[in-house]
């Protein structure tokens, strides 16, 4: 059943990777960010993660039981969805928010279409967009100050960064994640650790995070400072906000991102551009969720039109150039 996950154009390369093994690697890669979030924002974060994962796994099992399909919770994909959703939530949301969100992700974004491999949106992000539209106050105000665990009065630093093009946070604070933000998005070092692990293990393609973060950094450098060009802060753009977790863990989702290398690069660049546009000129302070969701939507079109060159076609071209 789960083999349907790996949809690639030929030639097919046999590999020993199983869906379960890949998913387990992703869970491992997310652990540093989850631990960092708990340390930074307190025990409550761990509770949110727990509720989200439990709700995702329970929804998957209950739905599959109800429609009399084989229960596939042991492939870890529901665990990842729950984990990813929790990491994108503010640390002070009421616990019913991750519970409802994870159930939405599993049932309405994934299972109604037939389960893993058939969904066209990243379930965790679609659920986040749903929660943001449903309970906007919780999703944009329930922040917590790092280490002190008291409720933060201000919005995330990203809103101020978008308006002024600069931030008061030092590079060290940004790398360690010592700023208000979603549970798993702030600690850049932890995310980098997990992301590099996935790249080394050949689970994700470096082109997506590179294209995403590169485009966002360059774009912010050019347009990020109001009233001036080429004076924006590229590091603030990728370190403050959800771009890092999005680029490594969301935009790289196998099922909802292109299969060809070039298509993946386009996916990354597209995500970067839309994130930039929404941040600088849009109605929301952060655009990562919507940027990745939009690129998920056009992924079938990218796969349709960005096809790899036929094997041996380069030779043809050379032969023609040779003037034979």
């Amino acid at each position: 059943m789960g083999d349907r996950l790996l949809v690639t154009p030929s030639p097919h390369v046999k590999s020993t990777k199983t869906v379960q093994g890949i998913m387990l690697d992703v869970v491992i890669a997310l652990c540093p960010a989850a631990i960092a979030g708990t340390v930074l924002f307190g025990f409550r974060s761990a509770l949110i993660i727990l509720v989200s994962v439990a709700s995702a796994v329970a929804s998957e099992a209950l739905y599959q039981k109800a429609v009399k399909r084989q229960v596939s919770i042991n492939d870890f994909s529901a665990v990842i969805t729950g984990l990813l959703l929790a990491l994108t939530l503010p640390p002070h949301v009421p616990l019913w928010i991750p519970a409802i969100g994870a159930a939405f992700a599993i049932v309405l974004v994934k299972q109604v279409f037939g389960g893993l491999g058939n969904n066209f949106l990243n379930p965790a992000l679609a659920a986040r967009a749903f929660l943001l539209a449903a309970w906007p106050l919780h999703m944009t105000q329930d922040w917590v100050n790092p280490m002190t665990y008291d409720a933060a009065t201000s919005a995330t630093p990203l809103a101020g960064f978008n308006a002024t093009g600069q931030t008061a946070f030092t590079l060290k604070q940004m790398l360690l994640g010592q700023r208000p933000g979603s549970i798993g998005e702030t600690c850049i070092l932890a995310l980098l650790l997990g992301g590099l692990y996935l790249i080394v293990r050949d689970i994700i393609d470096y082109r997506i995070p590179l294209g995403y973060l590169g485009t966002l950094a360059i774009g912010t450098w050019i347009f990020g400072k109001p009233g001036a060009f080429f004076q924006g802060d590229p590091l603030g753009a990728i370190f403050l906000g959800g771009a890092f977790i999005g680029a490594f863990f969301m935009a790289t989702d196998y099922v909802t991102s292109p299969v060809t290398p070039r298509g993946r690069l386009y996916m990354g660049i597209g995500c970067g551009l839309i994130t930039l546009v929404i941040r600088l000129w849009g109605g929301y302070p952060e655009g990562v969720t919507y940027a990745i969701l939009f690129m998920n939507l056009v992924t079938p079109l990218i796969d349709k039109y960005v096809v790899p060159r036929y094997y041996g076609s380069g030779h043809d071209k050379m032969a023609r150039k040779g003037g034979r």
């Binding site: 309405l108 749903f130 539209a133 449903a134 309970w135 906007p136």
Partner: peptide, 18 residues
């Protein structure tokens, strides 16, 4: 706590679909 999304287009489509 009412879910404002139900009054927006996504809420409409999803309600009818479900």
């Amino acid at each position: 706590e009412p879910a404002a999304v139900m009054l927006t287009p996504p809420g409409g489509f999803i309600t009818l679909g479900v």
